[in-house]
Design a protein around this nucleic acid. Structure first.
Lengths: 199, 199, 199, 199
DNA sequence: TCCTAAGCGAGACGGTACGTCTTGTCTTCCA
DNA sequence: TGGAAGACAAGACGTACCGTCTCGCTTAGGA
């Protein structure tokens, strides 16, 4: 309550830096950006940058927390909608990716994309893990270790998302989603059993 | 013929550098290595390094060509052995990975692994592509674009390989292969049709 | 009248800063101290420091005004005591230096000592100047410009004081004083004449 | 012999840096110069600077070694010329100072001058020490510890030199030298005895 | 057998970015 | 309303690499 205005100032500075990073990413790609570029763009002192963030990656990560917050609802909500297939909020992700494709494309091929992948990956695996844990809690047995299933599911999603972006999104999100489900559903269902475990 | 000895000398230098890189990778990981480290280890002058390679990545890539040559047979051969399921020489890859896991682990998490991935990726997709083209040539129709199938198949393989390595290979190669096939077979078969294409 | 409390607060803040500086000087020497060190030690905000002092040197100077007040009597008094040799209150200075040697030693070799020197220097030269002016007023003539005499006299004092401190005061103040007088008296007397000026 | 050309290159770089420093000192004074200024002026890379010198002061010191070499003959030679008064080559020093007064004046008031003082100080004290040791070797006794004499003599020289520079050299070198000798000779001779020591 | 060109080691160099540090200003909070 | 707190811009610092370069040594292969 007491530091209201100060907090505003701090938030403003952080925002300036985050915005500067995004605009620079769109201009020349994550890997080509230097800290100097960022602080010049943000009209901020060098030490101010380091007062707020550890380095460029940290700034990127902080930017992605917002992405996470935006993605969060998608990852959470669609779970209830369509309880049959909602292993992952895949459609929402394809749509979100399409909307933000400029930013994502700017980061392909460098360390930037890895940070993005990490954040998305955490969301995807958490979601998939919850899905399988719920299945188990209803008495199902998995013929394959759960972590492998989680990895496979989230990984397939990521692979297709990446391919789709790399190839300039030649199909609409809905169709990508159809194909994704068609491919993974078969395998996943094959390892879900009613009370007998293999491995 | 005339430059026989000279060529030997050149090859020796290249070998020294490649060996130095490998030994350093095993020691501290690809990303922590500097050009200076490499030339110190190889007892080679700085300019000599740049006479042979563009940069560290180039040296790595040259190292991987050997890997490629080693992988090549695996990727090619097993195709005929077990014509029923041989979309990919998956078992051979799991086994090869286990043998070389020290080297692969050293490169996880950095740019190094990306170069490895690229090399393996090319082999995997080529193999998968050949598989589906053969299917098409026998009159089958694919309910999903071939490139997506290729990406999905190679991607799933890569995802599982990476997970396996990251988690210190908790299952034997044969079991990993079992699970891999169980997961992808269902989906793949679901999109192979006899004469009617959807998309 | 109404600002009584405020004045107290201001004085308290100034005192905190001055004390912090002194304690830091004794710890690590004047030159190693930063403004940040001072305000941390004094539990004071950065702007508060700059509200009271221009910079570190200014704070030091304010501290030395107290020193000046303490030195003042020494510089003034001994003048009358021993009118024959009292060109400078040299014995008093050697004694004072010995008492405060911890603080003085902390400042040797940096800019800090220069500020101290400046303060002492002003006192010394003023005293010496007064001495020679009195001589002139009694009809004596100086074979060397008065300012050079003043500089020489105050400078010799300073040189010996500094040497004495640097060498951990190997002789007692009284002996130092003896030697100082022995050295300068000869030269000074040689340029004092009765009514004829050379230069 | 073998690295002749390389040495030339290194010397050239050092020279470029030294010259750049001097020209910058004359332009804006020692204290205002940054390392960046120096390397810009010298057309040299930042790391090259640090490959040769520790910091700005180190570069200054290296510059002064040349000064020392130039001063050396003065300090040594004049000893024989005028064996009666040659405690110090004082006249040569006043003359040298006048010739180089632009450079010396540029450094007054900052850390630069301290380095100069150190170099000159070492020469002065060494010379004075040699003088008194020679005296002792001829059977004379000193009524004051030799180190104090050395300090006093070199210090008086330095004090007068500094005053002279600060006041824009109002008297010619010869006259300064006369006055210097007049002042110190009296005191020095007073403490030289023939075989009897006091302190 | 000598000569000459290439491979090579050594390492100086210009350049760029980094993360740290300190200064003096400026905005906001609070008593 | 004025003193205190501390966020901030500015910019120098010394370090770490990079990729280019110049220099001589060694050595192989043709004259």
């Amino acid at each position: 309550m007491e530091n209201k205005k100060v907090d505003r100032r701090i938030q403003r500075t952080r925002q300036l830096l985050q915005d500067a990073l995004i605009s620079l990413i769109l201009e020349k790609g994550y890997d080509k950006i230097t800290v100097q570029n960022i602080i010049d763009r943000a009209n901020v002192g060098r030490s101010t940058f380091y007062a707020h963030f550890l380095d460029k990656d940290d700034l990127m990560a902080s930017n992605l927390e917002k992405l996470h917050e935006e993605l969060g609802p998608h990852l959470a909500s669609s779970y209830d909608d369509d309880s049959e297939r909602a292993m992952l909020p895949s459609l929402a992700l394809f749509r979100h990716t399409q909307e933000q494709h400029h930013m994502y494309k700017s980061m392909i091929g460098g360390r930037g994309i890895e940070i993005v992948h990490q954040v998305i990956w955490d969301g995807l695996t958490a979601h998939a893990r919850a899905h399988f844990e719920q299945l188990e809690s209803t008495g199902k047995r998995l013929a394959v270790p759960k972590e492998i299933l989680v990895t496979y599911l989230a990984g397939s999603m990521r692979i297709l998302l990446t391919w789709w972006l790399d190839n300039d999104m030649p199909y609409p999100p809905e169709q990508m989603n159809e194909m994704f489900l068609k491919l993974v559903d078969g395998g996943i269902e094959g390892v879900i059993q009613d009370g007998q475990e293999i491995s």
